[in-house]
Amino acid sequence: MNKIVLTATLGTLALIGLSSAQNNMVKHDLKIYLRMGNAPLELGKTYKTSGGMDYSVDLLKFYVSNVQLVKADGSSQAVPGLSLASFGDTAPSGGKLLENGQVFNAKTTQNETVFTLSAPSGDYKGIRFEVGVPKDLNHREASTIPMPLGLESGMYWAWNPGYIFFRLEGKTMVDNKSQPWLLHMGTDNWRLNVNQFDLATNKIKISVDGKSSTTINLDLEKIFSKGPNGAPTWDLKQPALRVMHGGANVGQAYLNLLGAWSMAQ
């Protein structure tokens, strides 16, 4: 009899605990500042590579997935979801969505939400996420899967079943003629890991309280911080460095991009 009472009591407490934890789940926006060095990025504005070549950024789209909040003990609070963020383009957002799917069409390049997470309230020591589509979703039948994946996402790669993870496009001048340049980074090998956490110096604090948000800088100037094969600059006159769908040059852009993320002050 006592056992039954004890079991029932523990069960009730567990349910209360569960309910309490669920009640403490709050929304929190991950936002992005798009930058060009120290200045806010302006879509369509002409910038210069370190080699002196003119270029603009007209469009940026990328997926965010595998978001994790970092706890004080270094462990992770996983957050489900896959989002597609678009700057300079409008992806369909009103229809059916994938479970935990999100679509964001930014109006500016500053302080725009790219992922809304739902997590237990509290203070965290940082955040990590991937720019890309999880392997499990990347190769599913594209013709029927809803947004943010599928044919209408603007990210489906027809030649390679899967999605462009990070799509950056603009224009450059070659022999006084405007030419498009683009970086389409995808395939399971090029999922980008963004890590912004600090357990040692206490400089990063993320308060998930239902009121605040977390903002991260993405400095697109870093894309051209180092050229492929040890070259100091990125020569956009070369077609293979102007149009990148894969291969060694995307590998260098990937490495450059790893250093392009930082916590906004």
Binding site: L151, E152, Y156, W159, P161, E169, V243
Partner: peptide, 29 residues
Amino acid sequence: LFWEGGSPSLELQAMGPITAHDEMGIEPS
């Protein structure tokens, strides 16, 4: 479909030339 055989159907293949920047270059939306 495609020269490296990466597309499994004509339906999905059609997305390639329609959206490729150096072919028809149009956003699905």
